[in-house]
Design a protein around this nucleic acid. Structure first.
Lengths: 145, 145
DNA sequence: CAGGATCCATGGCGATACTG
DNA sequence: CAGTATCGCCATGGATCCTG
């Protein structure tokens, strides 16, 4: 599946990075990369962001557009995104009330990097799929799901 | 930091994407974007990948390099990464046994996109920090942590 | 050294019911 | 319509002990 890389050479030729990709935890008093990743890695945040990326949406419309989300989780998700400044919540004092959600400018800047991951996942989903099948075949019932 | 994108226009001119960033769930029989994100968004995967990106490592050395990880979680994390074809596990039948972990080629391709997120988090951590403080100040005790 | 097995705490998340 | 409140499940993850 992934050729190259002489199979029996354990410890040679590793690359240097400008940003060493360490320091994932332990960022003093600022939200660490892990916090960011946990936020966008949770079950619904990216779905909400993806929908709001198409344009502003009211709560129930957003809810209907995200299949399977409970109203509780959508509320919590939007609260967190709002708290982090990624989503803006606007209340229109109509009757019945309507609340509109939209991406903030900061939220829009996240789209690019996320699309990077998204495209990677798209490009390599079959690789991953096949790797899993090989692994599960070789390790008969270590399969955890 | 992120110029362009007119600051005060709330609900107009949202961009069109080639990949609409929808279809996060519900990918038929292939690992969805959410699965990928859940994997790399879990507590230790990125730490392990970040360390292995520096070069191959044996289990305990890897464990010592990741502060706070339990041996159980490191094992599970590495298993999942191996299952997904991101990490290769090589056993050397010495005595006592030594096991070396290294990124696969597929694993290396993930570095780029992840660095995108990483850099975004770095660039905007203070923005997020400030947004949180404003939010917590305005919503006195809605603060969940 | 590199795990496996077990126990247990926490929190993410869903379901349901209620409200301004 | 857009939430809040409450309950309970279960997956994640930590601590500890044991093994080839």
């Amino acid at each position: 599946m992934f050729p190259g890389d002489s199979p029996e050479t354990p410890a040679e030729s590793f690359v240097e990075t400008s940003t060493p990709l360490t320091d994932l935890h332990a960022s003093p008093q600022c939200p660490s990369l892990l916090e960011v990743l946990s936020r966008i890695g949770d079950k619904w945040s990216l779905c909400a962001i993806g929908q709001l990326y198409q344009g502003p949406l009211r709560f129930n419309k957003l809810k209907r557009s995200i299949d399977g989300v409970s109203q509780r989780m959508l509320t919590l998700t939007l609260r967190n995104l709002e708290r982090d400044g990624l989503v803006q919540r606007t209340v229109y004092p109509t009757n019945p009330p309507s609340v509109e959600y939209q991406l903030t400018e900061l939220g829009h800047t996240l789209i690019g990097p996320v699309k990077g991951i998204f495209d990677w996942a798209q490009s390599h989903r079959t690789d991953i799929q096949q790797a899993r099948e090989r692994f599960d075949a070789q390790n008969p019932e270590m399969a955890q799901r």
